[in-house]
Write a protein that binds this DNA or RNA. Structure first.
Lengths: 185, 185
DNA sequence: TTAAACTGTTAAATATATTAAACAAAATAT
DNA sequence: ATATTTTGTTTAATATATTTAACAGTTTAA
């Protein structure tokens, strides 16, 4: 039975992200081409041990530790901006913090509403407490029979059982960071 | 500071030796050429991770365990015939069991005396207890003022402080396995 | 002894990893 | 806003790993 092959790319990228260094910085430090690092991180090459070692020495981390490295997402604490999970796109895009969330965890979502985006006249309802804050643009928020107009820096908090609706009536994207507990979908 | 690069070859060879399988057997099982295995074991190539993985899967052992593998000689118990340490060659060759022997360990040596080989008229003396057994050929052994002629199966045991001398007066190689405590050189 | 089946190693052919250089996109600076 | 760096990616050129095939040495069998 052929063992499933380990995902070198993710491991290396994780290491690099944790240290906040660029491919080129690491490349320079390890005397390896940045292209090689890119190819490795995307699993588009089958690196030689010597090359991998040069890179790991520059991190630095031992080969042994590298392969023993915990790569599970279970206890992941930091999610880099490009590691957010896309759980929906289109006129509204959703980037979630974390995966397979437990019921006791908040579902943090970075939401981007393009001009005209609307969650719908039929209103949303679900079993959660929901909060959010406007990062860019403006948002029309309806909760129950009240409608609010929010700008950058404004925030909201309500029980999601109350029918609610988001509409971007402005001319530019509206970006919101929101949180639901428990996760709503 | 560039980490000293790990000796992949020895590790793989050790694994293979422990399992008593040939390069070709392992090659077949792992779908890798026997040449590749030979080159890797002799550190004459810089194997790709994929290739190494295929081989390790066939052993089988995980990459992680492979690099975490204890490769120290400290507690080594079995020394294969090709692992004996050559501590002298020429008319007499010495192959020792183990390396960096402690004073409380016996120095076991496989000795081969070519026809005419002679440890010398000046006689040997050192602080040890010495024993041996003839495996092939014949040997003239002098200990103190006594000279003995030994054949296959014969053995000896004496205090090495007593001047002694080995001479192969026969026409074929004489092979002896000997032991000194403590090690004499 | 001789032959046959192994052992590990090596050389040339081939496949592929790695680099150097150019690219587009994003961040930073002016 | 417009450059200017810096980001990661990709392509073609080059270096090198891997295979195929042959070699020589050892072991096993007859």
């Amino acid at each position: 039975m052929p063992e499933k092959d380990i995902d070198i790319g993710s491991r290396l990228k994780k290491l690099r992200d944790e240290r906040n260094i660029s491919q080129r910085q690491l490349a320079k430090k390890s005397n390896v081409s940045n292209a090689a690092i890119s190819l490795i991180e995307n699993n588009k090459t089958n690196p030689s041990l010597g090359l991998l070692k040069k890179i790991l020495d520059a991190v630095p981390i031992s080969i042994s530790d590298f392969f023993a490295m915990d790569v599970s997402e279970e206890n992941k604490v930091v999610f880099r901006k490009n590691e957010l999970i896309e759980i929906g796109s289109g006129l509204i895009s959703y980037l979630q913090v974390g995966q397979n969330l437990k019921n006791n965890q908040p579902q943090m979502i970075l939401e981007r509403y393009k001009p005209g985006a609307d969650t719908g006249k039929s209103m949303l309802t679900h079993e959660s407490e929901e909060s959010g804050l406007i990062l860019e643009g403006r948002m029309e928020l309806t909760v129950g029979d009240q409608t609010y107009f929010l700008g950058v820096g404004d925030a909201y908090l309500f029980n999601s059982n109350i029918p609610h609706r988001f509409r971007n009536t402005g001319g530019i994207d509206c970006v919101i960071v929101s949180a639901c507990t428990p996760p709503s979908f």
